[in-house]
Amino acid sequence: MSSLRARFYLKIFFFTALFFALCGFQTSFWPNLITLLPSPQFWLMMIFFISLRWTPLFSVFYIYFLGFCLTRFSQIPLKMAWTTLLTTFCLLSLFKDRVRLSGALSFSFFTLLGSIIFEVSYVILSHSIEVNPTSFQFFDRLIQIIMNFIFSYPAYRVFEWLDHVFYDRQIWSATPEQNEDL
């Protein structure tokens, strides 16, 4: 197995492990300590990060996989998880090249945008494809969006670090021209 492929598998493994850890944090850690405010959806931020940073084709399938993992922690039907995440991914992909921001600021902005898209599309899709659709719960959803936005900066740092660990600059930056030069 080549070094590049090994790094790729390791990256997937660690990101998936992180996804589980974040889901566990949200379901079992935060509610036991803080009942007043909802937990920030770190798992959703991770999906935003993947949508923005990774190659689109692979990201879609990986997000589907994560959507499936999501149903292990929730009563959310798979159809709702996949359709909502796909909608969010598509809209974020549409916007990502049209916003001239970079780094953590960019990620915070896209977290805010993605959270709004996620919540709105969730309500719309629930009313479209579920027999007993969800209620609007405006303030609950608004607080959730704000919490996501607030915690997006530390989340970005962690994702960025993990992404960077498995990023081999020499391999990825070695374009044919550079190779010839070398």
Binding site: T27, P31, F73, I76, S126
Partner: peptide
């Protein structure tokens, strides 16, 4: 009880 639902829209516990 060891956990709550991941999505606030649903009300389940683990």
């Amino acid at each position: 009880v060891i956990g709550r639902d991941l999505v606030a829209d649903h009300n389940t516990i683990t």
